[in-house]
Design a binder for these strands. Structure first.
Lengths: 250, 250
DNA sequence: CAGGCTTGTTGATCCTGATCAATGGCGGCC
DNA sequence: GGCCGCCATTGATCAGGATCAACAAGCCTG
């Protein structure tokens, strides 16, 4: 639509960064037309994934970032004792692959929880053009810094929050992420099992189940299997804060 | 000692990347002489910090990375409820400042726990020369990826490990970091208070105190205030694993 | 040196969430 | 359609760590 009409055509349109719905969240943010096209060249587009399919696997080298375009991904790792630990869930517009940057093997496995599609951005080629486009370089740093901070906050949540606050925060976060995608923030379809949710939150499946029941009886949620409707955002947000009285310890 | 003897002189020697003890851990890893000197130019050297002095503060913009050269830093953030949360402790050779990259304000505050010194690396200038030195660019990505994974693992630890495993892992980690600096890995001098340790581990000070006592009575540690001697590394490592019998859940 | 203050240790009790156990609901397969 | 197996829910009990409380040991100040 800007300078090169020949690449903006047909279904290819949906595969181009210049037309992508996640532009503002993703790498292209703050790039102008010409630079966007240069980024576009290095992005391998529209890789479709079936439910259960693995995008990259722990221990393997695959220096690329992946932008989720549709669906949901789950990242997980294997702990020393052999248990699996869920590290995160990744919705459209979000980026995975920050471990495994450059040479080092991935510490995590990324798997599709439902039929999904991703854009693949090989790190080597990204680095090449980022070296030529300072704004892109900045954006890469910014995104990495943001993800780093997000993980820090997740660690804090895991260490200090009670079970209810963790689940409330999780649901609230999902809702906000849906809002960011211009979807209805009140209705969530959890593409992950209760087991995955529990594992992610450092809880046990029974606890998660009880919490869902409690939230329903409190009138905060309407729960039907994996379909969740948020009835009272304010209450959910309050529960997410820990809602214990304000005798802060400093 | 390599190519330019004129910059390798006097006290300046100790301030140069080419001579720095942390070279292999830090940004310069894998750079050769000429490129090292170019990096050297952008690094503001040897900023001394008094105990309690703040390096950067939450909410302020200051796009720079800092390499700890001596001493110990503590990073922390303020939670929604006003409480302070310790995010990490940073020993010589380690890097802080990954939040607050580029424009965005810092999410955390970095403070010296004892008299320390750091090298400051302005991100804008780092980006400039990284754009010209692919190996440096790679190293920046590698370090960021490593820090990201480290935070992920910390989050997992906070969510799944019992109090004893957390403390054992913390002490074991400190020991390993001392080993990496060619210091005695058996003798630790904790420059942080019990309160800081407890806060960092998502525990309460009484619990940490009890755990220290228990470790001492088990013959794993000899504790005298903040001086800790590790007597049984194997036992500490086992406690860090959770040492609950191996009925893994998968 | 005394006194107060901060930091750390130890004890008693309570509560959250894990564990153990049983049941319900739904989908796939023969 | 009936059976089996997985996923989720619910109940009963237990234990790890928080909370409340008292006390000891340094450290700074006057």
């Amino acid at each position: 639509m800007t300078s090169s009409p020949e690449v903006v055509q047909l279904s290819e349109v949906r595969a181009s960064c210049t037309q992508c719905a996640w532009q503002t969240l993703c790498l292209p943010a703050s790039l102008d037309g010409t630079n966007l096209e240069r980024l576009d060249e290095v992005v391998r587009k529209r890789r479709p994934l079936r439910r259960g399919e693995v995008l990259y696997r722990e221990g393997l080298r695959h220096a690329a970032l992946f932008v989720v375009r549709s669906g949901t991904l789950k990242t997980s790792t294997t702990l020393a004792d052999g248990d699996t630990q869920v590290l995160g869930f990744h919705l459209p517009g979000e980026i995975v692959g920050f471990d495994g940057l450059v040479d080092e093997p991935h510490h995590s496995t990324a798997e599709a929880l439902e039929d999904s599609s991703v854009c693949e951005v090989p790190v080597a080629r990204l680095a090449e053009i980022a070296a030529q486009i300072p704004l892109l370089q900045q954006q890469v740093y910014r995104i990495m810094g943001r993800e780093f901070s997000r993980e820090q906050m997740h660690a804090v949540m895991m260490g200090r929050r009670h079970a209810m606050a963790r689940l409330a925060l999780f649901l609230h976060g999902l809702s906000e992420r849906r809002r960011a995608c211009n979807h209805d923030p009140d209705s969530l379809h959890l593409s992950m099992s209760r087991q995955d949710v529990a594992n992610y939150l450092g809880l046990v499946i029974e606890t998660v189940s009880r919490l869902f029941s409690r939230l329903q009886s409190l009138g905060v949620l309407a729960v039907d299997r994996r379909a969740v409707r948020i009835l009272d955002h304010a209450a959910l947000a309050e529960l997410a804060q820990g809602e214990e009285d304000s005798r802060a310890t400093a």
